[in-house]
């Protein structure tokens, strides 16, 4: 067994993180099999019903089964966050490579745009964009992607610049590899480690951002099950049925905890500059 893998297997908190994410991903994938009933099935007779043998988490203000909504909510939340992160990565890789490899005026312009976005609190700008586009989950995802790529693009550009000078890139060029092939095969492969750490930690942040905007009513719209929106739905019943807000709240916290633990563990593994056990937080940009 390679050494890093052994070290990873001996890190209990990273394993816990991985376990949480695996369970959440399984819940998301298997929601139709696991859920006792459809997440949007309204049954006014069971309005605010307490948990019982068949419906473990009880029913919400419209009599919908809370367990089913939490399970399907994993789908919405994880799916939306994953998709958003993919879009962010596509933008960031394109911009980063273009800026780093092309250089010159293009580099200056793209990085000025990135700095502009980095100079501003992402959530506020995302809020303004989402508010402009109108409330919907897709709009919120677009808004988050539009403000989030800048940090990655800067990182990738920096790495492209440093890798570009190295011997193996020259060697690749000498044997006739094209620019694009060099970038994809040699540059991207070399920045994979740090990227994996960043992406894992950012998944937690993006989930928080998307759920926060959905909580405000800007993201996911009823009756779609989404944890942030469920939290907001539960607010009027804080006194009579606090569980309506506790379950989705716990779900958000658990998943974010999972990504934080795993991200920290991966950083220990992949980033040799970590100091003394519980790691310095990532510096923005």
């Amino acid at each position: 067994m390679p050494q890093p893998l052994q070290r990873f297997l001996r890190d209990p908190s990273a394993l816990l993180g991985l376990a949480i994410i695996t369970v959440a991903a399984a819940a998301a994938l298997l929601a139709p099999l696991l859920a006792p009933q459809g997440p949007t099935l309204v049954d006014l007779e069971r309005r605010l019903a307490s948990p019982d043998r068949h419906f473990w988490l009880g029913a919400d203000h419209l009599g919908r089964d809370v367990l089913s909504r939490v399970l399907y909510g994993a789908r919405t939340t994880l799916g939306a966050a994953g998709l958003t992160l993919s879009v962010i990565m596509v933008i960031a890789v394109l911009v980063g490579i273009l800026a780093g490899y092309h250089g010159g005026w293009l580099d200056t312009m793209l990085m000025a745009l990135a700095d502009l976005l980095l100079a501003f609190p992402a959530l506020v700008l995302a809020l303004a964009i989402a508010g402009t586009l109108g409330p919907s989950l897709l709009n919120v995802m677009m808004a988050v992607a539009l403000v989030w790529w800048a940090g990655y693009a800067r990182l990738i550009r920096g790495m492209v610049l440093s890798v570009r000078q190295r011997e193996f890139v020259e060697a690749a060029r000498a044997v006739g590899a094209g620019d694009w092939r060099i970038m994809v095969h040699h540059v991207l492969r070399n920045i994979l480690g740090p990227m994996v750490v960043l992406v894992t930690l950012d998944m937690g942040l993006i989930i928080l951002g998307l759920s926060g905007l959905s909580f405000l009513g800007l993201g996911s719209q009823p009756p779609t099950p989404e944890w942030g929106a469920m939290l907001n739905d539960g607010r009027p019943f804080l006194q009579s049925a606090p569980r309506l807000m506790l379950y989705p709240g716990a779900a958000i916290c658990l998943v974010v905890l999972g990504f934080n633990l795993l991200g920290d563990g991966l950083r220990d593994l992949l980033d040799p500059t970590v100091v003394h056990g519980w790691k310095s937080p990532r510096r923005p940009g």
Binding site: L208, S211, L231, R235, L238, I252, C253, V256
Partner: peptide, 11 residues
Amino acid sequence: ATVPSYVLSLL
């Protein structure tokens, strides 16, 4: 780092 402000507020 894990508990978002909106969950903490409600709690």
